[in-house]
């Protein structure tokens, strides 16, 4: 597996992206992408000459799964790993003490490549995204 991105919560995606561009030198590599299944809108950033992304995520709607986390002040949210075999890696995570929160579903941010979510008893939240064939597409 490869680290695809680190997920971070933000109330205002554009404002946070601009702030991180100014502070850390991030490049903004996508617009705001809405995913109604995940009840989230996201934006991807990248540091020059690095392979992984920073994903900013904000609640999409009042009933978003992210709204509560954001209210508690949580900022760093999850790690996302790119996998060649999402089913096999999900099975492996399950056997290693993680609970599957979401079976593979199409993700708007990755042009419908599948993602899944797992969490362990220490509240570590991981996302898996399938590599598929060719370069992993990022909706821009």
């Amino acid at each position: 597996m490869l680290l695809h991105h680190i997920g971070m919560l933000a109330k205002d995606l554009r404002a946070e992206a601009e702030r991180l561009r100014g502070v850390c030198g991030y490049e903004i590599v996508s617009g705001e992408i809405e995913d109604s299944v995940q009840t989230a809108k996201v934006m991807f950033l990248k540091l020059p000459q690095t392979d992984s992304f920073l994903e900013l995520a904000a609640p999409l709607g009042e009933n978003s799964k992210l709204a509560r986390a954001l209210k508690t002040g949580e900022k760093l949210h999850h790690l996302c790993f790119q996998t060649d075999d999402i089913s096999a890696d999900l099975k492996n995570f399950r056997e290693k003490g993680f609970l599957i929160l979401c079976e593979p579903v199409a993700a708007a941010a990755f042009k419908d490549r599948k993602i899944a979510w797992v969490m362990d008893s220490q509240k570590n939240l991981f996302e898996l995204v399938e590599s598929g064939s060719g370069e992993l597409p990022l909706k821009v």
Binding site: K65, R68, G97, L99, L101, M119, D120, S121, K123
Partner: peptide, 12 residues
Amino acid sequence: WDSVAMVQIILA
């Protein structure tokens, strides 16, 4: 007993 606590409870 929110969704995160549920994960911990199920695993326990």
